[in-house]
Write a protein that binds this DNA or RNA. Structure first.
Length: 274
DNA sequence: TTGGGTGTTGAGTA
DNA sequence: ATACTCAACACCCA
């Protein structure tokens, strides 16, 4: 489900609902979600910890606690809800954080792909999974020179490069297709074949697209909702993702769906020359 | 009814 | 390095 704009929206909305609340205990119904440390330690470390902030790194949510950081990845369909202790349980709720005031932060995940790690504060940045991530799209470190260097030394196609979180972190299938369409670059083009103009366009439209999507509260394709259960509105602004068979906004040609690097990929063949 | 596809990412293999 | 397949899992739809 969630790429950078959706995770950022969840961060902003959920933060209001959990800030300064203290966890009294944690229940885990699907242990595979807990990747570090072991489940019992995980539960124990979080007891009596207050949530002081929620941050984001790429597609990860970081719940900042007094002494620890909970690193949470939603993968395809992870969602957080605030509910009351006596609210009925959903069958896809796998982790419950009960606060001292009786409210609960519930983690729902139909496909159970999501992950959670807990680290001592400060150690999260030097361990997997966060230590593998490349720069944020809006980082100063994400310069033209850095990006061009990463692209020009590889024969991989630009679609898979943009999905590679070690190059730049936060893009998934939707925003890669949207970015490449606006930049008018075909997703099958090899990194080393891109011109400076194309690289600059990709970088510029990547940031513009992500920014616009954050302003709209993210994209709701299937089931995405923010921390307060509200849908995002960016799907109204999609140009190619899920638009196969429709007319291209620029040239009127037909949007087609291809398979590139194993992923469904949407392009206008006229605007994005291979 | 069934098989392929879905917004993610890691491991294993060649 | 990279490309490819599979795996985790549940649901939807043609």
């Amino acid at each position: 489900m969630p790429e950078l704009p959706e995770v950022e929206t969840i961060r902003q909305t959920l933060k209001q609902l959990v800030i300064n609340k203290t966890i009294s205990y944690v229940e885990v119904y699907w242990p595979n979600i807990i990747k570090h440390p072991d489940v019992e330690t995980f539960k124990q470390l979080l007891e009596n910890q207050a949530i002081t902030d929620i941050k984001r790194r790429g597609k990860f949510l970081l719940f900042i606690l007094n002494d620890y950081v909970l690193v949470s990845h939603l993968r395809m369909e992870g969602k957080y809800y605030i509910q009351q202790q006596d609210d009925s349980l959903n069958k896809h709720t796998h982790v419950i954080f009960t606060f001292t005031n009786g409210e609960q932060l519930r983690y729902n995940d139909v496909r159970k792909f999501g992950t959670m790690h807990v680290f001592k504060k400060g150690e999260e940045t030097t361990n997997k999974p966060l230590n593998q991530l490349g720069p944020e799209p809006f980082d100063e470190q994400f310069t033209f020179n850095y990006f061009a260097q990463r692209l020009k030394r590889t024969r991989r196609n630009i679609k898979s490069i943009l999905l590679d979180q070690t190059v730049v972190t936060g893009l998934g299938n939707i925003y890669v297709d949207e970015t490449l369409f606006k930049a008018q670059v075909h997703p099958a083009k090899k990194g080393h074949s891109l011109t400076n103009e194309e690289i600059n366009a990709i970088q510029t439209y990547m940031k513009e697209t992500l920014n616009d999507a954050i302003k709209q509260g993210g994209t709701t394709i299937r089931s995405y909702v923010d921390g307060q259960g509200e849908m995002g509105m960016f799907q109204q602004d999609l140009y190619v993702y899920g638009k196969e068979g429709e007319a291209c906004h620029y040239c009127g040609g037909e949007i087609v769906k291809l398979r590139i690097s194993g992923r469904g990929t949407h392009v206008c063949r006229t605007c994005q020359k291979e």
